[in-house]
């Protein structure tokens, strides 16, 4: 490696070491910090009663639902974008990218106005006589899922879109020329080839949703705590950093443990078609 190349890379590596690698290592070491030096005290406390395991279970369950819903709607949306006429494609890119680039605080605020008592959703449902005006999805898991799907769907859609763009159009042409209809081609050519993008996008959504706390915190509130929210609470409220670090470590492990079989399963499903 030339000296010039090393000089170009060094400042970035230095800043990332200081501002990223060391902080993450600090969290991991603090998690195993115990009175006796190195120990699992913080983790033992997590499993001491059912409160935190239930919080972890809610986090996993909500993240899985959010990941499935985003994949179910986000991936077909990418397909529409890839095949739509230019104007519609551009319009849909704005529809996906504008919310993605808007602060998560602002988007959550929008959902508070929609989901709250007397909010847009309650009024719409009341108009069709489907619910009373006091109807509210605040402090419900449904409300959290709705808002989180809107926050995270762009990640799936854009990852799948970029995979679809790389598919050689001749593969589809070949299938059609040989007599396969639209749906058969979709099932046996397009979907399997798009699968890596769907897997990558879904993993990203799962990791992001398991660790998020701004949206679940403001919409779910204290009655529906998720891991991100209890970590935030411990770091800023009770200042119990060792315990917070242990929870963050568990969050990381959780994301990895759920991610690996999911990735393998999805890859196998893609390959067998």
């Amino acid at each position: 490696m030339k000296r010039e190349t090393a000089l170009l890379l060094a400042p970035g590596v230095l800043v990332l070491t200081l501002g990223f690698v060391l902080p993450v290592l600090r969290v991991l070491t603090l998690a195993f910090d115990a009175k006796t030096g190195f120990g699992l005290d913080n983790f033992a406390r997590f499993f001491a009663d059912s409160f935190y395991p239930l919080v972890a279970w809610r986090t996993v369950r909500l993240s899985l639902v959010i990941t499935l819903v985003t994949a179910l709607f986000g991936a077909p949306l990418a397909l529409v974008m890839a095949r739509a006429p230019r104007w519609l494609r551009m319009a849909l890119i704005v529809v996906v990218v504008l919310p993605l680039m808007t602060s998560v605080v602002v988007r959550t605020f929008g959902w508070l106005v929609i989901l709250g008592r007397g909010g847009l959703l309650a009024q719409t449902l009341a108009y069709f006589d489907l619910a009373g005006r006091n109807f509210s999805l605040m402090h419900t898991e449904t409300g959290v899922v709705l808002a989180m799907v809107q926050v995270l769907m762009p990640f799936v859609t854009l990852t799948v879109l970029s995979t679809l763009e790389k598919i050689d159009p001749r593969l589809e042409e070949a299938a059609r020329v040989m007599g396969a209809n639209f749906w058969t081609t979709l099932r046996h050519v397009v979907v399997p080839l798009a699968m890596p993008g769907l897997v990558a996008g879904s993993l990203l959504v799962f990791a992001l949703s398991a660790s998020s706390f701004v949206t679940p915190g403001l919409i779910g509130g204290v009655r529906l705590p998720v891991l991100g929210a209890t970590i935030y609470q411990q770091v800023t409220g009770t200042l119990d950093w060792g315990f917070a670090a242990a929870q963050a470590t568990l969050l990381l492990i959780l994301a990895l443990v759920v991610a690996l079989p999911y990735a393998q399963g999805a890859r196998r499903a893609g390959a067998s078609r």
Partner: peptide, 11 residues
């Protein structure tokens, strides 16, 4: 997860 970075930097 960004939350890891946030806690680590704070600590």
């Amino acid at each position: 997860p960004t939350i890891l970075l946030g806690i680590g930097l704070l600590m």
